[in-house]
Design a protein around this nucleic acid. Structure first.
Lengths: 249, 249
DNA sequence: CGGGGGTTTGAGTCCGTTCAAAATACGTGG
DNA sequence: CCACGTATTTTGAACGGACTCAAACCCCCG
């Protein structure tokens, strides 16, 4: 169930009101092709908010009132069904956008967005998005590219899911988190600081927490990685890669 | 010209050259918002082709040269990895479009498109699509809606997949094929004529043909459906629905 | 009639689940 | 800072669904 039951999309901290002009992420966001005056418009209509880990940015089933820009931090999209089954369909980090699937698809959100790190997000109203799309059609193309990429990832995931066991998928997951959540220490080892609980890992892998724990143990026994809570140490990246890429005959 | 470079995507029958104006499916396709002169343009640049069951319309890995309109018949998108694992990510029938994910996402096709029924498709060149997008930006919005819907379905499928066993997913599959591939006979029974082999069903369910056979047997033993090759008879739709919707306490 | 691909059935195994309990981490108040 | 209650994680044992390998079957076609 949820931890902070009641409050909906209530930011804990008022906006520190970043400017779109100085936004680090703009160059690789959908808004990169905005002309100066359009950017000025965007900057004037957006609102900026902060969320702490565990706080919900929007809920599955809620109507989509606009689009969010993640300035910093990490958000997960959780999707659940009537029976309480839950999967994490996506992780969204700084520079990425949020809520556009429902915006373009119509209908309510199909997943809940929850901050798993302290997050700074900007909100752009439906009408403002619509206006920007009119003023600069290339924004639409940018979102087309984004959605096409999302669909590709979802279908890759589908294939990956039905072709590999949990151990392989866990190795996959680690690799996909490498760039954003690991550093190399003096000895050349990879040091992860995962933003995910074991339960969240299970939701991402489509399995149960118990299985995650057991699979972690297997990877440790195989010398691939050492897990200590959310801290993971990988001595030899090649061993991790071998988990994913079977030794082909 | 463009697609003859690969002898594979060679239609068996020359176009019967349907007109876009008389196309039955236009009203619910992405092209429904085209003005008359744009439609005339589309009609002049599209080429129409036929494929027989088993023929490939394009291959995973091939560059995307344009977009296809399925006028009639059914196509499946097969996606495979280096190890030979295969899933069917989508079924596309008359009125739907094909190849737009790669067109907007850039890069080569991520799946192969194979006719599983006699199919009539129109091909629209990249440049023509681009021109139409420019002339009528609402086309872009239509594709945004389409991709958003595809992504939603893919993520629904993901949840469905990790939450339900093969038996439930098979029932799901039947229900999803009901509208297009079944009729009601005089006694009120549903008569399916499936366009899929058992292997294809396995690819859609993310399982093996043996498991499909066994699961079919279970459904028969439970009196839910009778399978005779590709012909399926469902006496009582409610029984099928019960397979999907667990009796909630 | 004799292939040959697809399908079904069988037997055995393995992976992941379930249920239950123990261990560990966490937050809160004393 | 420690103690305590709670939630999460880990471990264990038993079960079950789906997989693998293999053989038999079937149907379509030459």
């Amino acid at each position: 169930m949820s931890k902070s039951e009641s409050s909906r999309a209530m930011p804990i901290v008022g906006g520190h009101h970043a400017s779109c002009f100085s936004c680090q992420n703009r160059s690789n966001s959908e808004w990169c092709t905005l002309a100066d005056d359009d950017l000025r418009y965007l900057d004037s209509v957006k609102t900026s908010n902060s969320y702490l880990p565990g706080q919900q940015i929007f809920y599955q089933g809620n109507p989509c009132l606009g689009i969010f820009c993640v300035e910093s931090g990490t958000v997960v999209l959780r999707k659940s069904d009537a029976s309480g089954n839950e999967v994490i369909t996506r992780m969204v980090s700084g520079g990425e956008t949020l809520g556009y699937r429902s915006y373009f698809g119509g209908g309510p959100y199909q997943a809940s967005a929850e901050a798993i790190e302290p997050v700074q997000v900007c909100f752009i109203d439906r009408d403002a998005v619509s206006a920007l799309l009119q003023r600069n059609p290339s924004i639409g193309l940018n979102f087309l590219r984004r959605l096409a990429g999302d669909l590709e990832r979802a279908e890759d995931e589908h294939l990956n899911y039905s072709a590999h066991d949990v151990r392989t998928r866990l190795a996959h997951l680690l690799l996909s988190l490498k760039d954003r959540f690991s550093d190399v220490d003096d000895d050349g080892r990879l040091i992860f600081r995962l933003p995910l609980s074991r339960q969240d890992m299970a939701s991402m892998l489509g399995t149960r927490p118990e299985t995650v724990a057991r699979t972690i143990r297997k990877l440790e026994d195989a010398g691939v990685a050492v897990f200590d809570g959310r801290r993971v140490v990988v001595d030899d990246l090649d061993l991790l890669l071998d988990e994913v890429e079977p030794v082909l005959a």
